[in-house]
């Protein structure tokens, strides 16, 4: 049987069009959860690392990656879950960070809190709760425009 191995650059490009199901403005590649893509004969092996161990989006992400690759004509896809080294917000791409802020979610910072309000850009912000609408987010509030906002928390 003749098999065509699509160049890996194309695969990465296709994957960068697969949105995160909870935060659709960033892709699974922006999020840094696609760790590796390799051909093994006619099978494409994709290694994915979960953000939070109980994140319900993980199963949806796996399905969407597989569906996107099949839609491009790749017949044999296997997904491998890899938990070590554990996912860190350091793997979020710069493009992803900018897209998050434009969407209204303050991007993560090692300092442990948002730099500024994603809406009005004021720097006087306070934490409401370390937990938010998804496992990866915390709730903060701008003391200037008084709007609450999501902060993508650092792990």
């Amino acid at each position: 049987m003749v098999t065509t191995q699509v160049p890996l650059d194309d695969i990465w490009r296709w994957l960068s069009d697969v949105p995160d199901p909870e935060i659709p403005v960033i892709s699974v590649v922006d999020l840094g959860i696609v760790r590796d893509v390799q051909w093994d004969g006619d099978t494409l092996r994709v290694t994915v690392t979960p953000t939070y161990s109980g994140c319900p989006a993980t199963a949806v992400i796996d399905m969407e990656i597989e569906a996107a690759l099949r839609a491009k004509g790749i017949e044999h896809v296997t997904l491998k879950r890899q938990i070590a080294p554990p996912w860190t917000t350091d793997w979020l791409s710069d493009a992803g960070r900018a897209k998050l802020e434009a969407y209204g979610i303050a991007p993560p910072r090692p300092a442990g809190g948002p730099a500024r309000c994603p809406r009005c850009h004021a720097t006087t912000v306070e934490r409401i709760s370390q937990f938010g609408s998804t496992p990866c987010k915390a709730q903060w509030r701008c003391k200037d425009c008084l709007e609450p906002f999501d902060y993508f928390k650092c792990i």
Binding site: G54, C55, P56, P135
Partner: peptide
């Protein structure tokens, strides 16, 4: 509401760790 969300998120983390 914040407490509700936090407890549900922590439960989710713990169940995820359980699966591992």
């Amino acid at each position: 509401l914040e407490e509700d969300i936090a407890l549900a998120n922590i439960a989710l983390d713990l169940i995820g760790q359980t699966q591992l």
